[in-house]
């Protein structure tokens, strides 16, 4: 079974905003809201780091559990999606989410105060349904990952992601110990 995940390599992120724009471009997320945003911490002093925050597609998605109307569900492959037609905008998933991923944009026609969050590039901001009423879903190919300037943002099949991260970390550890 394939399970998809994101992982931020915080040592790599440079706050270039590539992920933010790539996501906007791909999913046509309107101005005023976003599915991914880079947080800057310890600004201006040693320890300054940047973290790209988005939906992380939690294993036991708290948002899914919290949603009172079953607008959020988790696919077999771990991707957490939502149906905007069902959402009532109660904001409860936003409280439940540890990453602050759900957003409730104001001033967006059709979707006012309706929850939006990252979908692994599976569903764009403006969701479309087929004749049978199912939401049309694209292949999981997150643009924040493929466009990430420094490959700080890892995403994809869990094993693969953790393995890359492990290698990087190990490489760093080794070279530091050996003092190369």
């Amino acid at each position: 079974m394939v399970i998809y995940k994101f992982l931020d390599d915080v040592d790599r992120c440079i706050d270039c905003g590539g992920c933010f724009v790539a996501c906007k471009e791909r999913n046509q997320v309107p101005v005023g809201t976003s599915r991914i945003s880079v947080q800057r911490i310890n600004e201006g002093k040693p320890g300054e780091r940047y973290v790209a925050m988005s939906c992380m597609h939690c294993t036991h998605a708290p948002c899914e559990q919290a949603c009172p109307v079953k607008a959020i569900w988790k696919r077999e492959d771990g991707i957490v999606l939502m149906d905007k037609d069902k959402c009532i905008g109660c904001g409860y998933c936003g409280w439940a989410c540890p990453f602050g991923a759900p957003k409730y944009p104001h001033d967006v026609p059709n979707y006012q105060v309706i929850m939006d969050k990252g979908t692994f590039c599976v569903i764009p901001f403006d969701q479309q349904k087929d004749a049978a009423g199912n939401i049309i879903q694209a292949a999981p190919d997150p643009r924040c990952v493929s466009f990430c300037a420094t490959k700080a943002r890892l995403g994809g099949e869990t094993n693969e992601v953790t393995e890359i991260y492990r290698q990087r970390a190990a490489g760093k550890l080794m070279s530091r110990q050996v003092g190369v």
Binding site: E64, Q65, A66, C67, P68, V69, K70, K86, C87, I88, G89, C90, Y92, Y104, Q112, V113, I114
Partner: peptide, 20 residues
Amino acid sequence: EARPFLAMLTMNNHLATSWL
């Protein structure tokens, strides 16, 4: 709520896990 009427009808749809 964004959709009060929908909310009225559906808010207790997820008793399995949703405390709301």
